[in-house]
Amino acid sequence: MAKIFLKCFGVFGISSNFDKGLVEAKNIADLIDFLNECNRGKEKISFVKTMVYINGDHCNSKNTSLKDGDEVWLLSTTDGEPKPKPKSKKKKTAKAKKDDKKTV
């Protein structure tokens, strides 16, 4: 496990319950698990939803190992709000589809 300094930016940076501080993690995936734990009940983040930089260099993989003293920047547009489940959609009739097209 490495002691690193994590900083969160973007909309995620102002909506997360954790925005910056010392964290123990072995890799980026660990950090993301940590953040999701901190933000229970909110929209989860994943590696694909972020841009991650380690010591200023872009990180391509969530399995990238961390070492003591690393500084990690995590940028994300995830807004932290839990998303409502989509309502089941009734299939539109051909007439309804045609009417939709007419309005634009």
Binding site: F9, G10, V11, I14, W73, L75, T77, D79
Partner: peptide
């Protein structure tokens, strides 16, 4: 439709209203 589009887009509906253009400082640094 346009209002709905602007409000649901991550830049115009979330980042710009919540962080303003100032929200670009961190990605510019990166």
């Amino acid at each position: 439709k346009w209002v709905k589009q602007l409000r649901s887009h991550p830049l115009t509906g979330s980042q710009l209203p919540r962080l303003g253009t100032a929200g670009l400082v961190a990605p510019m640094q990166a």
